[in-house]
């Protein structure tokens, strides 16, 4: 009996969690985001980030990019459950490691401090296409685009150069080459 698990348990084996990026095309209508988010929370799936905006005004389609983690079984469920929703047109699912897909996230970083520190901060961002969007004699607002984990790292690194505020978009994804998501 000591080995017994819940009648509700899915599997005795601890399976590895993978990070997946799920792209969902939906009708841009009231409540659609709540349906997607509610499906995730209701069924106990993770959302690490979520980016959504209308991409086709004529057809009224929004594209949602969700970063999630789960066992292969759970990720498969997420995909199938999403597909069942009435306003969902299509679902694509990729592992983060997938080489055929580009993932990018944008972040706005506010740096407050002396000139010297601010310049160091800017330098540190160099790899990630920094754009200075706002500049005063006390502060910078820098825009960078990078991978999630790169931004994670930047946030830690820039603390010492006077990073006071971060705003991030969540990852968006696009296939490489001429192919498009199916």
């Amino acid at each position: 009996m000591s080995k017994a698990r819940s009648a509700y348990s899915i599997s005795g084996k601890k399976e590895k969690f993978d990070t997946h990026i799920i792209v969902v095309w939906v009708d841009n209508e009231a409540g659609v985001l709540a349906r997607i988010a509610g499906l995730f929370s209701g069924r106990g799936y993770n959302i690490e980030s979520l980016a959504v905006a209308e991409v086709d005004k004529k057809l009224n389609i929004s594209r949602i990019t969700i970063v999630t983690t789960g066992t292969p079984q759970v990720v498969n469920q997420i995909r199938l459950q999403l597909k069942k929703l009435v306003p969902v047109h299509n679902v694509a699912d990729f592992k983060r490691e997938d080489k055929r897909v580009i993932f990018k996230e944008m972040a706005l970083l506010k740096i407050v401090g002396k000139n010297e520190k601010r310049d160091k901060a800017l330098k540190a961002c160099k790899k990630f296409n920094p754009v200075i969007l706002d500049k005063t004699n006390k502060s910078f607002v820098i825009q960078i685009t990078a991978l999630r984990r790169e931004i994670d790292k930047m946030i830690v690194d820039l603390k010492k150069f006077g990073l006071v505020s971060v705003s991030r978009t969540g990852a968006v994804a696009m296939t490489r080459g001429a192919e498009i998501f199916k």
Binding site: M1, S2, A4, R5, S6, A7, Y8
Partner: peptide, 10 residues
Amino acid sequence: KITGKGKTLV
């Protein structure tokens, strides 16, 4: 008899 962990299940 149901013992141990079995008790916590629904």
